[in-house]
């Protein structure tokens, strides 16, 4: 569904992604693990168009409902790497960014409405709002509160909920467990599984490799801008290299 072909991304002169290739199939949870500075967030930001790839290509399989942007080329695949972020978002790629990036001065309800910014189907939006509030009942009580007043865990829920409000074809989650209490981490991963079970494809970036590999179907291990290992999540969990470097065993 989503394919990266030897993607190179730079920050000025710094070569951050050195030819990343990966695939996410429809209905999967794929995780991207690696240490700080390996390029996980850079990969997500390159997919969503916040950063632009200098070389390589990113393809998104065309959806059934034609939300096709006129400027995207290709026969069956839409090419994402030439599009600005807002057009990528409109094609059904939704990101819950690192550090949550809640709009602090907008109310929780307005934050969720921002998630549905590109949509015009009123019924669909209110249906998704109900679904998000069902997933995160805590948000229900805080709907009219400014986003900035929420606790860290609640903000993470809001960030994921906001990303879901666009009714995405693929959800990019960047470090959803960062800075959360262990009990909340468990809860968040439970919810990720639930979202996936409801039919959303997920690309999950995590430092918590253990938890990520437990929910994922497949995983990629990123090291200084290169993919060094990939495979079924089960196999990666059992891999002694991964265990040593990322699982702290």
């Amino acid at each position: 569904m989503l394919t990266l072909e030897s993607v190179h991304t730079y920050y000025g002169h710094i070569h951050a992604l050195k030819g990343i290739s990966l695939t996410v199939n429809e209905g999967e949870i794929v995780t991207l693990i690696g240490s700080n500075g390996a390029g996980k967030t850079t990969t997500l930001n390159t997919i969503s168009g916040v950063l632009s790839a200098r070389a390589g290509a990113i393809y998104l399989q065309e959806g059934d409902h034609s939300r096709r942007s006129p400027s995207a080329g290709g026969e069956h695949d839409l090419r994402l790497d030439r599009l600005p972020a807002h057009e990528v978002a409109r094609l059904g790629v939704s990101q819950s960014p690192e550090g949550r990036k809640i709009f602090a001065r907008l109310s929780v309800r307005e934050n969720l409405a921002m998630g549905a910014f590109a949509r015009t189907d009123r019924d669909g939006i209110s249906g998704d709002l109900d679904r998000v509030l069902e997933l995160f009942p805590r948000l229900q009580e805080r709907l009219s509160q400014p986003g900035g007043t929420l606790s860290g865990g609640e903000q993470q829920m809001l960030a994921i909920g906001r990303a879901l409000m666009s009714s995405p074809r693929i959800l990019l989650l960047d470090e959803p467990s960062m800075g959360l209490a262990p009990i909340l981490v468990q809860q968040i991963f439970q919810i990720i599984r639930e979202i996936n079970a409801q039919g959303t494809t997920i690309l999950l970036v995590e430092q918590n490799a253990q938890a990520a590999l437990q929910v994922a179907n497949r995983g990629y291990v990123l090291e200084t801008g290169n993919i060094v290992l990939s495979g079924a999540a089960r196999d990666l969990l059992a891999d002694p290299q991964v265990a040593e470097a990322y699982l702290g065993i």
């Binding site: 978002a89 409109r90 709009f103």
Partner: peptide
């Protein structure tokens, strides 16, 4: 709402489309 969102955080607003 979009104006207020852009005022707070341009790149996150662009992630919302």
């Amino acid at each position: 709402r979009a104006m207020r969102a852009v005022a707070e955080d341009r790149s996150t607003a662009s992630l919302m489309g």
